[in-house]
């Protein structure tokens, strides 16, 4: 008894210093990642928010203007146009590309001839450089001698300026982005499907479940983590699209294909108005944060993770 009583304080002190070292170690291990995260993510966000509250004079001095830029933004019809465009663009691309990705993944997940080739074919759009993709589709959409108009010509229909008409330009972009993203998302679904044990499907089959019932009650719920991941990616991508617009439409005609990030790019680098660009960026950041909050706060709790 006396032995343990005597040794107790020492061991306690030792565990305390050990715990201290553990903490220091942990922070040291975290440091590289933390430095990168702060330097390239958190600090720029704070700097942007600060910048949106100032305007920069020609001589380089900054003047505090408070929420003036935000008021100007609220009165800016092009900003609203870009926001609404972005909404329709997201609505047009996200559900369709995810559904297509899931269908394609289930299709190529079976044992069949040429499966590898089919998987590769679906994945090709993702591998191609975006500038090349934009040029391919530019050829499809070219009036009169583009692929689409030549097809129309077979039915005796006249040429159509697909990207030059405000009523069709958004639809054209949506189709292209779906084509590009569905294959990429398919890879994630394919990986998730291959993680599922075939026993589950067999067990369901023995219980008399139809294929649709099995998909609805077993496969799809078990794919929910993937669906969420893919959906978040799709949302981010729909706010991130710039390069195709630069090649294909430059946001035109009459801002019919201007999306939020493209507008920010134009404001910052064409109009050289960095403080207004910062204001717009803050709005974009808030939009994406809300989506992230919904994901972590609500959806994650309702999804089964293995």
């Amino acid at each position: 008894m006396t032995d343990t009583a005597a040794s107790l304080p020492i061991s306690e002190r030792r565990t305390q210093s050990q715990a201290w070292w553990n903490t220091v170690n942990a922070w040291l291990l975290l440091l590289p990642a933390a430095v990168l995260l702060v330097a390239f993510t958190h600090w720029p966000i704070l700097a942007t928010i600060r910048h949106s509250l100032f305007i920069t004079r020609r001589n380089g001095t900054e003047v505090y203007v408070g929420l003036d830029s935000y008021q100007a933004m609220a009165a800016d019809p092009i900003f609203w146009k870009a926001l609404v465009n972005n909404f329709w663009f997201a609505l047009g691309t996200i559900p369709t590309s995810i559904t297509l990705a899931l269908i394609m993944a289930i299709w190529v997940n079976r044992n069949m001839r040429g499966r590898g080739f089919l998987r590769l074919a679906y994945f090709t759009p993702t591998v191609l450089p975006m500038i090349a993709v934009a040029n391919i589709w530019l050829f499809f959409y070219t009036p009169d001698y583009g692929a689409l108009d030549q097809l129309r010509g077979l039915f005796g229909l006249g040429g159509w300026n697909w990207l030059g008409d405000p009523s069709t330009v958004m639809g054209c972009l949506i189709v292209m982005v779906i084509w590009k993203e569905a294959g990429f998302f398919m890879i994630f679904y394919l990986a998730a499907l291959q993680q599922l044990s075939p026993d589950l499907e067999e067990a369901a089959a023995i219980e008399g479940a139809s294929r649709w019932y099995t998909f609805r009650r077993i496969t799809f719920p078990l794919l929910m983590p993937t669906t969420l991941f893919v959906a978040i990616n799709a949302v981010i991508n729909s706010f991130k699209l710039v390069d195709h617009l630069v090649i294909m439409t430059k946001g035109g005609p009459n801002n019919a294909s201007t999306l939020l990030l493209y507008y920010i790019y134009e404001v910052a680098f064409t109009f050289q108005d960095s403080s207004y660009a910062a204001t717009l960026t803050v709005v974009l950041l808030m939009l994406l944060s809300v989506i992230a909050l919904i994901k972590f706060g609500y959806l994650d709790r309702r999804i089964h993770y293995q």
Partner: peptide, 20 residues
């Protein structure tokens, strides 16, 4: 006949429980 039509039950080695 399909497994369902055979009116059997089965226990799998992996148990094949639906995890969700």
């Amino acid at each position: 006949l399909s497994p369902a039509q055979r009116k059997i039950s089965m226990v799998f080695q992996s148990y094949a429980l639906f995890p969700h």
